[in-house]
């Protein structure tokens, strides 16, 4: 237990400190790197909770893919952050309001969960065989996700699919007059149709 406590406080401290550094560091690339550190230590907290499947998904999806694209974009952008900071006083009240609202929401949620327990559709997961000591939590999640919550799950999948198609449609552009590579032609090219034997006489050259 002592080790778990040490690990918890260590990772919680790292999460909070790097979350703070995300908003306070001067260099945007450093902000993204701190964001990655925050994701990673949050994954560590998930592992401590026994939710190793969620922890790995957090690392694969957010750290491994989303944050790489973030980093990609931020490194390429040439943003003058000194200029951006000038509006700080103007946006301060609105930002403070949103932050306050979120803080109140989180306090309400966490106190409710702490006093009354989390709300669940499945009143007794142990009895229905969806959760228990012998079942790995990837399997436990799968059992409820594909039975009770299957419609929500499918709906979420549809939303993602539509978003993906939308992104492709918005960025797909066929400009006329642009030379494109046709891979099939390149693959099918053989010495017979790609080469021509000529024997020019001295001083004549070849007219292509």
């Amino acid at each position: 237990m002592a080790l778990q406590a040490i690990a918890f406080y260590l990772m919680a401290a790292v999460t909070l400190a790097s979350a703070l550094a995300v908003v306070s560091s001067k260099n945007p690339v450093h902000s993204v790197l701190f964001l990655i550190a925050a994701f990673f230590s949050a994954a560590g907290l998930f592992v401590l909770l026994g939710a190793e499947f969620l922890a790995m998904l957090l690392v694969v999806v957010y750290v491994g893919a989303v944050a790489v694209l973030f980093l990609f974009v931020v490194m390429m952008l040439d943003v003058d952050f000194a200029e951006l900071r000038q509006g700080f006083a103007r946006y301060m009240p609105l930002g403070g309001l949103i932050a306050g609202g979120l803080a109140i929401e989180m306090i309400i949620v966490s106190t409710t969960v702490a006093t009354k327990g989390a709300a669940r559709l499945n009143e007794n997961p142990m009895a229905s065989g969806t959760a228990g000591p012998g079942i790995p939590n990837a399997e436990a999640i799968g059992r409820v996700l594909y039975t009770q919550y299957v419609y929500f799950f499918q709906a979420a999948g549809m939303v993602l699919l539509v978003a993906m198609i939308g992104a492709i449609v918005l960025t797909l552009r066929h400009k006329p007059g642009v030379k494109r590579q046709i891979i099939m032609d390149q693959v099918l090219r053989t010495p017979a149709n790609g080469m021509r034997m000529v024997s020019p006489k001295p001083g004549e050259g070849i007219d292509a």
Partner: peptide, 16 residues
Amino acid sequence: NVGILYLFAVSSMGVY
């Protein structure tokens, strides 16, 4: 239990 995902996650972080 999620060993294969762990390896996948760690190798996907290698890009950093």
